[in-house]
Design a protein around this nucleic acid. Structure first.
Lengths: 235, 235
DNA sequence: TAAATAGTGTCTCTTAGACAATATTAT
DNA sequence: ATAATATTGTCTAAGAGACACTATTTA
């Protein structure tokens, strides 16, 4: 806290809840928006799937805890991550009072550790957002909110490229947007809007795979990303 | 949390941080945007001002804790309140690890208890946002972020009326917006935008005070507010 | 040369901003 | 009548959506 109204303080006079971070990890895999889930082995919700998370250690910040969870599950660091919301209903965990600070992360598929090696041998799996299993705790609510936020952000920022490799083509980026938003977009309007944002630049190179005409490869400008980050709603 | 990655659980194996809620309480008083602060009496930051807040009790939700703090400080219930962000740097409180879930509330000045009677005798005072004292903890950062969010929301929603009494005139509403945004707005464009949102309705009555032509009194439509609430970014 | 994919321009409609005159009341 | 405040409409510029054809490559 900060102050106990009358500014008295005695930690032992209050029971303390547990605090965890849960990280909703999104990626585009096999042409679908997928989320990484962990299978629970014990009560409560044994056998059900859950968003990866864990306790916040006493000496680490919330962001550090979320980044640590992400790295443990995917081996990935330095990807887009933002705080989503804090969920704290008293009965959301049947064991004890647990307040969780939820984050969501966007991870390019090519950056993920091959065998999804968690530090321990917990079973993890990527699930399509449109085909989720039954979820433990209030995690269905958290996932639903994370998707809503991701879709919302796609409409007014250009975070989509955070799910792609460093170099990508505009058709690839548009495809990513269409997968997440669940609707087709007009090529010309999409290109106009994205390029007008000024955060992409051509590499001068082409991607020549597949049958048709090769596509130009783009990257995002580091400076421009700073601009976008400054305008984020959530610090 | 939810799961400890490997789904083992033993609460005693982890130290637990304290969890508090801090509530940034905004109101329009004496023609200024003001925020309610509490003077600290003890170490740390004795004598400095802080955002009102307190521990989350084991049996209450975060929202309930925030609403309780708000009621204790202002006597007000059932006003606009939303979760702002969760701040958890390990050293934000020199006493122990304290994670705070920050909320912000919009309170109509006419609804506030006259003598600002907190349940205890802590000294509280309304400070203009443009003339803040030195603040305890990371509360300057929290206030700054709360103002940013309020200004942002004013631009794409019509939350401004949450700071006004049930009945209000369009010039009063515009004045509230100008105070918060810190800039003059065009009367005609403002009225067009607000009325186009469809969330206000005329009462048929007039406010006849002061010298000039009386102004029409409006209220907000309950149904319309539900619509706006459904479109909120934060659940 | 056929098939596949990448890339481009215009028109329209809506929205937001700039801008000034009239209407209604109290004094 | 004068002062004070409330109310109203138009023009313009910019942004968003609808829409179809040309360009470049591989097989």
């Amino acid at each position: 806290m900060s102050n106990d109204t009358a500014a008295t303080y005695d930690p032992s006079q209050y029971d303390r809840p547990s605090v965890t971070v849960d990280v909703v990890i999104f990626s585009l895999i096999d042409d679908r928006l997928k989320v990484l889930l962990v299978r629970r082995k014990q009560w409560p919700f044994a056998g059900m799937w859950a968003i990866p998370g864990g306790f916040v250690r006493m000496e680490e910040s919330l962001e550090a805890a979320a980044a640590r969870e992400l790295a443990e599950e995917t081996g990935v660091r330095d990807v887009y991550m933002e705080q989503l919301y804090t969920f704290g209903d008293p009965d959301r965990d049947p064991r004890t009072r647990v307040i969780t600070v939820a984050y969501f992360a966007l991870v390019p598929a090519n950056a993920i550790d091959p065998p999804q090696a968690g530090s321990d041998a917990a079973e993890t799996r990527w699930f399509p957002m449109r085909d989720l299993p039954e979820l433990a705790f209030d995690h269905a609510q958290i996932l639903s909110y994370a998707l809503e936020r991701l879709q919302y952000k796609l409409e007014y920022t250009v975070v989509g490229f955070e799910l792609l490799p460093d170099l990508f083509t505009l058709p690839e980026l548009q495809h990513a947007y269409e997968l997440i938003l669940g609707e087709a977009l007009d090529k010309r309007n999409f290109r106009r809007k994205i390029l007008a944002s000024g955060i992409l630049e051509e590499t001068g190179e082409m991607r020549r795979e597949g049958e048709g005409r090769p596509a130009r490869l783009y990257r995002y400008k580091e400076n421009a990303v700073v601009e976008v980050k400054a305008r984020r709603l959530f610090p």
